[in-house]
Amino acid sequence: MKDFIGLRAIRGAGYTLLLLLEALGYINHAWKRRRALFTQMHVIGTQSLAITCFFMLLVGMVFALQTGIEFARFGQTSLVGLVIVSAMVRELGPWMTAFVLIARVGSSMAAEIGTMKTSEEIDALEVMSINPVSFVVMPRLLGYAIMGPILTIFGTLVGVAGGALVSKVQLGVPLDDFLRMAERGAEPLDIYWGLLKSLVFSLCAGAVACANGMRTTGGAVGVGRASRNTVVVALTLTVFLNYLLTSFYRMVKRLVAGIL
């Protein structure tokens, strides 16, 4: 019964949540740890920019192509702009960026912290009365939470651009038409919502990565396991959260529409 998998999962989830809260509690150390924070922002953000943009560009292009083919059957190819922008801003932008970050940053973050754990570095910090959550976890989590939404903005813009490119070149939709429809695809509220989602995903994935790292036991094998678990759990969690958040948003929008 001790190794009952559900129980382990619950314990893991509990630990992750507590770690997240504790790390947020150390946010007042951010200035003291600014060097670590900037390093993390660089690693998480700047270094992920190219791959995120490349990824989103292609997502936008494929998406435009696919919807364009269907719309063409009804002679509505000009609607492509609307669909792309609304999907990019609210769904694809935040989640696909989170996806890229989990694969690129989450796994390595868990491995890095896991290695620190198995090589006694975390213990050494504790012995030096330096709280590992403040020293190791907080800068990573905060860096993740800051850079996730910023990358989402870039990713979404590039994704839309990719869509516009395909629309013009392959679907024959003039850029003006695309943009005119695009404007109607997203309200300001949608944009904020997309960014909020991205923030939630980032905190989530970051916390999962750090928690897996901090709970690593058993040498190199354990580090590998932590890294793998991070990717699986963070992806599952964000895709599930995404569904919940989208449902919630839809409900709110309908309520608001009903009131007005």
Binding site: T39, E112, T115, M116, S119, E120, E121, D123, A124, L125, E126, V127, M128, S129, N131
Partner: peptide, 19 residues
């Protein structure tokens, strides 16, 4: 935490912070 400030510990592997 307060107590440990009296301590210095050399770990078996050195345990230096990698970065």
């Amino acid at each position: 935490e307060v107590m440990r400030r009296k301590f210095g510990v050399l770990f078996q592997s050195g345990a230096l912070i990698a970065w």
